[in-house]
Design a protein around this nucleic acid. Structure first.
Lengths: 222, 222
DNA sequence: GCGAGTTTCTATACATGTAAGAAAAGTAAC
DNA sequence: GTTACTTTTCTTACATGTATAGAAACTCGC
C-alpha cells in the first residue's frame, strides 16, 4: 500500500532540490568539463533551476567548493596501514592527505579554509596528533605540530599548483627568470651559484623530504 | 638653458603614465581605502585614464598585486643583523620575511605566485640558502630546504589570514566547530581530548616554533 | 607634407558572483 | 475557502576583470 507522499512537517515552499544534489551536480560538471566550467549559472542549468536558487543551499561559491572537497575526501580517502613507529606514522598519515589533495588541483582556491575539516580527514588528523603525542610531545604541542604540518602541506600544494598552472599558460621567461638572470655574484654568491639549476631544482617534488625534516624537528627532544 | 623635452627615441604613441605610476596609485588606494577598493576601474580614475589602458602596463590584476608586493618589500624590508650560527641565521632571516608579509594581509591573493621573487627579498633568500649550506647541506639540498621553509611560511600566512578574515565576518559557529562538537571519543580519542582547546590552541602564533623545528630537521645529519 | 609602421589608449561587450526584492508554493489557524 | 506565515525560487540589477576592435598619437623614410 503506497504511502501518501509522507506528510510534510516543514513549513514553507518545499525545496526542489537538496544541497547534496547541488554538490553531486557540481561534481559531474567538474569531472566532465573541468573546474573552470563550474559556474553558478552552469550549475543552475545542470540542476534545472536558476543561479540564485542555489544560494539557498550553499552560502556562496566558496562554500560549494569546500563541500565539493569534503565530498571528494569522503569518496577517495582510504585509511592506509599505518606503521607503529610514531615518527613514521605521522609522515605516512600526512603524506596520504597530501597525495589525495595533490591529485585534485582545483582545491587550491579552497585550501586556505582554515583546517581541513572534512569529517573523513579527521582520522588522519587524529593519527598525526596521536603520533606526535606517542613521540613524546604534550598534547598542546602535538596540536601545534599538526598545524605546522598542515601549513607546510597546504602551502606546498597551493604554490605548486599555481606554478604549474602558470607554466602551462605561456612559455615566456617568467619574472623569476629575469631576476635570476640579473644576479650579482658578489652580493648573492649562493644564489648565483645555483641560478641555472634553480628552475629544475624547484620543480622537483621534495614534499616528503621536507615533511620528514619537519617531523624530525618536531619530535627532537629540546 | 632648458633642454627641449628629450627627443623621443621610441616609436609609437607616447604613454600617458608609467607602470611605476600605476603601482604608486594602487598603493595610495590600498593605503587609504583598503585592498577591497582596489579595482581596475577605481585605479583608472585615480590615474585619470580608462580601465583598459592599465592593461598596457600590467598584464592583469594579479600581476599588479605582485608589483604592489614588490614595492612594499622594497620599502619596508630592512636587513637585520644576522647571527653567525647557521641555524639561527636561517631562522632569523625566514622570520624577517614572515614578519614583513604578515603585516600586510592583502598579499594573500598573491602569495602563491611561486617564489617570493621581489629583488629586495633575494638577500634573505641568499641568507637562508647560505645558512643551510653553512649548516652542512649540499647546495641542492639547501635550495630544497629553502623551498620547504617557503612552503611553510607562505602556508602559515595564507591560512592564518583567511582564518582571521572569516572570524571578523560573523560569529556564528564555524563548520569546524560543528565537526568538533560531534566527535566520537572512541574513534578519535586524541581529538576529543583537545576538542575544547582546539580553537584557542590553533589561534596561538606558533610560527617560530614550527620554523625552528623545520630548520632543525633540515640541518640534522641523516 | 604624407603614408607606413608602432605603440598606447578608448569604447564596447561579455561572463561571472551575488545582492535585493518580488513571486510562488506550501502549512496552520480560522 | 480565506488569511497569515514561512520557506524556496525567480527576476532583475550591479560591480568586477578583461577580451576585442579600432581610434589616436607618435617616429621614420620619403
Amino acid at each position: 500500500m503506497p504511502q501518501p507522499p509522507a506528510p510534510r512537517r516543514t513549513l514553507g515552499r518545499p525545496p526542489r532540490f537538496s544541497r547534496a544534489e547541488v554538490v553531486a551536480a557540481a561534481r559531474r560538471i567538474v569531472d566532465a568539463e573541468g573546474v573552470d566550467r563550474l559556474t553558478m549559472r552552469r550549475l543552475a542549468t545542470e540542476i534545472g533551476s536558476t543561479p540564485m536558487a542555489l544560494y539557498h543551499h550553499v552560502r556562496n561559491k566558496d562554500q560549494l567548493l569546500v563541500l565539493l572537497l569534503d565530498d571528494y575526501a569522503a569518496r577517495t580517502l582510504r585509511r592506509p596501514e599505518l606503521p607503529d613507529e610514531p615518527r613514521e606514522r605521522v609522515v605516512v598519515a600526512a603524506a596520504a592527505i597530501h597525495e589525495a589533495l595533490a591529485d585534485c588541483p582545483w582545491i587550491v582556491e579552497v585550501l586556505t579554509a582554515d583546517d581541513l575539516m572534512s569529517a573523513s580527514a579527521l582520522w588522519f588528523v587524529e593519527q598525526i596528533v596521536d603520533g606526535l603525542v606517542a613521540g613524546g610531545l604534550p598534547p598542546e604541542r602535538a596540536v601545534h605540530g599538526y598545524r605546522a604540518i598542515w601549513y607546510y602541506t597546504a602551502g606546498e600544494i597551493m604554490i605548486r599548483a599555481t606554478a604549474t598552472r602558470r607554466r602551462t599558460g605561456d612559455d615566456k621567461p617568467t619574472y623569476r627568470d629575469q631576476v635570476f638572470a640579473a644576479l650579482d655574484p658578489d652580493e648573492l654568491p649562493r644564489l648565483s651559484q645555483v641560478a641555472q639549476r634553480w628552475a629544475p631544482l624547484t620543480a622537483e617534488d621534495t614534499y616528503l623530504d621536507g615533511l620528514r625534516a619537519l617531523v624530525d624537528g618536531l619530535l627532537a627532544a629540546r
